[in-house]
Design a protein around this nucleic acid. Structure first.
Length: 762
DNA sequence: GAGCACTGC
């Protein structure tokens, strides 16, 4: 301990010296006390957290912890924490900041017996696995003194003093308790990821710090853009901790490569022929490229015959079935003594950049591209663009080569290009995503003035305007920009506003049961499976954080490459001719009745459906809490599907396209030419459709599309289909006719009433 | 005629 700072010694106080002596004591005990006599004479020290004696594992872990680079900075950190309300800690992968810093904070702060320290992570798996690890390190049961809170899973108790949670979850907590009063110290970890939730928390917590003098904030990040963080947090002190990775030699090309695919394949083959043993990881942008490259690498190497060792080329991307994904973890072919090296070549998307760690990789090939989701508020389209990676990404990719031993990274671009062309960081999400959901969150947090809100990076004004416009049309915000009663209800759902709107409206159409199912199926089905979690858990915390993530295909329909046709046929069995939303409902119904039978025979992704069911239960819980009836129209009723489609329109009336005379579809108001995505299940091309998403890939596609009647649009959303505010187009003329028809119907009704209704008694 | 990666009381 530093001499200038005499800490208050409490029961919770575990100083370095104390732990060192404890460690020595236990070493002695374990040596002499086989028969227990010595142990009885020297009772082992009591863990102040649990009130029980420390276990042997505690000491084993303690020794490992003390080797972490961050331990050398413990005193410095505690001093900085005492003297400042905000501080920034920069530490490279493997320095131990995520597990140790929160424990240091517990050592420093005199806390009550309620949850007082929160540490955020961008990913659920990280929050859960780190919490479990830290519970072991503190020798307490998970869910007691150390807990976690992520979507669908909360493991905390009244005893919890340290809680790991996702950043989005802390934001959710802030919506109910804006000052976050139950926390004394909030640690935001992995802030360089710049998730939307982290960015919002930055600004919100900055404001909370002004209102709560007792709150402290620790911001932790990997390297890069440190000055920016420091500037934003008005010069908060900065601590740097170095990590422990093996060195990686980086090679650039002399000249820019014209064809990065060809260059990547050539480099892989060269490494295999010339470099010593060690597996290769190649980064490409998508499934098509990856399958292509795998085939070509195999071909070229096979052409060399027996002169070179055999290779196993393994593709890796998220929509690959799980069993295939797991192949990347199998060891490659063993090398024969004296023979040429054999090796495994993994060809992967970005998934291998941060999401999972593969043992044995020594060579990385980085062509410098990735696919990115980009939102254009002008045309309201999210598209996938093949674009250059950032320096931070390149750094991360290179690091994949140095995890087990010194490695090499081959960048297929020039050093000049790296220095001059690549962005420092990947664009933060706040620049790239549709902000409707985020703006609703901010409104719920009580932030009125979005334009002057203290974002670290301000989103484009158009994106904010679009979000406000959408929320206004949905009835979430009134014309002054205040949250309406409807908006209050919508903000309770962890869903896009269109979806929360259709949920809130669905009881009115007597189909909230079905709408809840469809919402669950539509909400992003990517989710994490904790396959390797326990296996890696005791080995290495960094691996545990990053190894265990496998994606479920984002779609409930499987389409294995080798069985496309069969998959298509199986899918058509579920197809509903009125549209994909109803098809999703069919799949769910089928699964509920047949969950025991082999889903794979029907090319149905059972894990996606299980996940959807989890989401559904959560949504039903929220509905019930809000007093919204969970009900269904009789399945045999003529209006069963009609009601469902109408309820969907109540949310999706802004995402509608109209078929023109020439057969093309134009989106309403924006007049974008779009095509029905070939995966749609309709047997016809309806005049009007609504859609879930507009994606720009090989063409302008609208995906997840359902037939809607024009009359419903003007009945359900007359404020949006107000013709005085509509560009001249075929859709407008079609709507004019519909309004005319409605007007005639109305006058007939008036006449009937006039003549047929008996006059009311005076 | 088709699929980068993640997340949410």
């Amino acid at each position: 301990m530093g001499t200038e700072w005499k800490r208050k010694v409490s029961l919770f106080d575990v100083s370095d010296d104390y732990e060192a002596s404890l460690s020595a004591l236990f070493t002695r005990l374990s040596r002499v006390s086989i028969n227990g006599a010595a142990a009885a004479a020297n009772p082992p020290p009591i863990n102040p957290w649990s009130g029980r004696p420390y276990s042997a594992r505690y000491l084993k872990l303690l020794e490992k912890r003390r080797e972490l680079p961050v331990w050398r900075h413990k005193d410095e950190f505690l001093r900085a924490l005492r003297d400042n309300r905000t501080l920034i800690l920069v530490g490279e992968t493997g320095c131990g900041k995520t597990t140790q810093i929160p424990q240091f904070v517990l050592d420093a702060e005199d806390l009550g017996n309620h949850s007082a320290v929160a540490c955020t992570q961008p990913w659920r798996l990280a929050a859960v696995s780190v919490a479990r690890r830290v519970a072991q390190e503190m020798d307490v049961a998970i869910g007691e003194e150390v807990g976690y809170s992520v979507r669908f899973k909360h493991l905390c108790s009244y005893k919890t003093v340290l809680k790991y949670l996702t950043d989005a979850m802390l934001l959710r907590e802030a919506m109910a308790d804006p000052l976050l009063e139950k926390y004394k110290v909030i640690i935001l970890d992995e802030v360089h990821e710049r998730t939307l939730a982290t960015d919002v928390l930055f600004a919100h917590l900055k404001a909370v710090l002004k209102k709560r003098p007792d709150l402290k904030l620790v911001v932790m990040s990997a390297a890069l853009e440190v000055e920016k963080f420091q500037g934003y947090f008005s010069g908060a002190p900065l601590m740097k901790v170095h990590g422990r990775l093996h060195p990686v030699d980086i090679f650039y090309t002399q000249e820019p490569e014209r064809d990065y695919m060809e260059a990547a394949i050539r480099t892989a083959v060269q490494i295999h022929m010339c470099e010593p043993a060690g597996d290769i990881l190649v980064f490409l942008t998508g499934e098509g490229e990856i399958e292509d490259a795998c085939w070509k690498i195999n071909m070229e190497i096979n052409n060399f015959g027996d002169h070179v060792g055999p290779v196993e080329v393994v593709p890796l991307y998220s929509t690959l079935p799980l069993a295939m994904q797991l192949k990347v973890f199998e060891p490659g072919p063993p090398s024969l003594r004296g023979g040429p090296p054999r090796r495994k070549i993994v060809v992967s998307t970005n998934i291998a950049e941060t999401s999972l760690t593969i043992d044995g990789i020594v060579y990385v090939i980085d062509p410098g591209f990735t696919k990115h989701k980009v939102y254009d508020p002008r045309i309201r389209v999210e598209s996938l663009l093949n674009s250059p990676i950032s320096k931070a990404s390149a750094h991360q990719r290179a690091g994949r080569a140095g995890r087990t031993r010194p490695g090499k990274c081959f960048r297929l671009y020039t050093g000049k290009s790296f220095n001059e062309d690549l962005q420092q960081q990947t664009y933060p999400e706040i620049f790239r995503l549709n902000l409707a959901y985020t703006v609703l969150t901010l409104k719920k947090l009580g932030i009125d003035d979005l334009v002057h809100f203290d974002f670290m990076d301000h989103p484009a004004p158009e994106t904010l305007m679009r979000a406000l416009e959408v929320l206004n049309y949905l009835g979430t915000l009134d014309d002054e920009g205040n949250l309406t009663h409807l908006g209050e209800m919508m903000s309770e759902f962890p869903l896009d506003p269109q979806m929360s709107k259709m949920l809130v409206m669905s009881p009115k159409y007597n189909c909230s049961n079905e709408i809840t199912t469809i919402a669950a199926m539509l909400s992003d089905l990517n989710h994490l499976v904790y396959v390797w979690h326990l296996y890696y858990f005791d080995c290495n915390i960094t691996m545990c954080k990053q190894s265990a993530r496998f994606l479920v295909s984002p779609n409930c329909f499987l389409r294995p490459r080798e069985a496309r046709k069969a998959a298509g046929e199986a899918r058509s069995r579920f197809g509903h001719i009125d549209g994909d939303h109803l098809t999703l409902l069919n799949v769910c119904h089928w699964y509920k009745q047949n969950s025991k039978s082999s889903t794979y025979d029907y090319f149905i992704n059972a894990r996606a459906l299980k996940y959807a069911d989890k989401v559904r239960r959560q949504l039903v819980g929220i509905m019930t809490r809000l007093g919204l009836k969970v009900c269904s129209t009789d399945f045999n009723s003529r209006v069963y599907y009609v009601n469902i489609r109408k309820a969907l329109v109540a949310g999706y009336f802004m995402q509608v396209a109209h078929r023109e005379q020439n057969g093309h579809y134009l989106t309403v108001k924006d007049n974008q030419i779009v095509h029905l995505h070939p995966s749609n299940s309709m047997d016809h091309k309806p005049e009007w459709v609504f859609f879930d998403e507009f994606v720009l890939t090989t063409s302008n596609f609208i995906r997840t599309v359902t037939d809607v009647r024009g009359e419903w649009l003007i009945d359900i959303a007359p404020h949006y289909y107000d013709l005085s505010n509509f560009p001249l187009c075929e859709a407008k003329r079609a709507l004019e006719k519909l309004y005319g028809k409605r007007e005639r119907e109305a006058s007939v009704t008036r006449v009937r009433r006039l003549y047929l209704t008996p006059p009311a008694a005076p």
